[in-house]
Amino acid sequence: MSRNKSGRKRMKYLITGGAGNIACQLTHRLPEDAQVILTDVADAPFSEVTSNAVYRKLDVTCEQSVLDAFVEVQPDVVLHFASLLSGQSEADRNAAWQVNMQGAFHVLESALKENVDRVVFLSSIASFGSPLPDPVPEDCEQWPRGFYGFTKAAIERMGFYYKESLGLDFRSIRLPIVISAFPSPGAASSYASNMFIEAVRNGTYQLQIRETSNPALIYIDDCLKAIDLLTHANKDSLTRASYNLFSCSPTAADIAIEIKHVITDSEFIFEPIPKVADLIDSWPRRIDDAAARRDWGWKPDFQLAEMTREFISTLQCLNAEGGL
């Protein structure tokens, strides 16, 4: 057992989907003395990680490989982020089934066998579908319109089974669209991040959604804060397996206006593609996240105006350094 200088056990975190944007940035919020093992199929992490993080290749669709990794690492906490996103899932349902569904099953089975303390799963507001009440309540029925959302809803149910029937500490958070400097090229939801990125990089951006589209959004800093809070919340304070999360839900036109306040000559062109626009419009707008606020102290720090100023400043620095 590895311990730090104070004699306290050093926590081990194993993160699947560890080459991705959220996983890489989360390493900067985890305890400095922790051992962080990032795993993914890519050759290297997508962005910078902390010095206490190591990277190893792992394909979650291979049951034996997942179990071998758990046996070797003996993690205390597993953060299961590996997933094909919305656009990729629609384009290749078989691959999405293997990565999302089979991958989650392999992770949960291995966690159970190796006595992992807790498993944190990233779900999505895409798990709901439409039509929906506004705001969406905590226990709203989930009938997703996309294959990606279906897998997220199904894994929530699978995790609930492992929690209630088998005693595994499974925790899930339904992320809104995340605004980040490193959006996935395979996600329909990347439009929101790309509005900011392309405004800084090129001054213009063409969108495939409607001006009125306003699914729930969250800034990356708030996203990481929420994952951190849920991961480290006292088990006895949790009243449910899956939690809603809400920050803001501006329309695409509102985002464009706010960006123009900072980058006055930026231009946004709306050329909706019905299949893409309808998918985005099927996602929740306002979401009841009272349980997260009550159980583990969730509260967003960024609304649209604050997010815009902070994010554009970050992007301008990245662009100047050639990293955008």
Rank of each mutant, 00 (worst) to 15 (best):
S2P: 03
G7D: 06
R8V: 10
N21K: 10
N21I: 12
I37W: 10
T39W: 00
A44R: 14
F46L: 15
F46Q: 15
Q64P: 10
L67V: 11
A69F: 03
E72T: 14
Q74T: 12
V78H: 08
S86P: 05
A95S: 15
M101L: 13
Q102N: 14
V107A: 06
E114A: 07
L122M: 01
A126M: 02
A126H: 05
D134Q: 14
D134K: 11
D134P: 08
D139R: 14
Q142P: 13
F147D: 13
G149C: 07
G149Q: 08
I155P: 01
R157N: 13
L166I: 08
D169W: 05
P176N: 10
A188K: 02
E198P: 03
A199I: 08
I209E: 00
N214Q: 02
D221M: 02
A226L: 09
R240N: 03
C248D: 13
D254Y: 03
V262I: 05
T264P: 04
L279P: 01
I280H: 12
W283T: 01
P284D: 07
R286A: 13
A292T: 08
G297T: 11
K299Y: 15
D301R: 07
F311R: 06
F311Q: 01
I312D: 04
I312Q: 02
S313T: 13
A320Y: 03
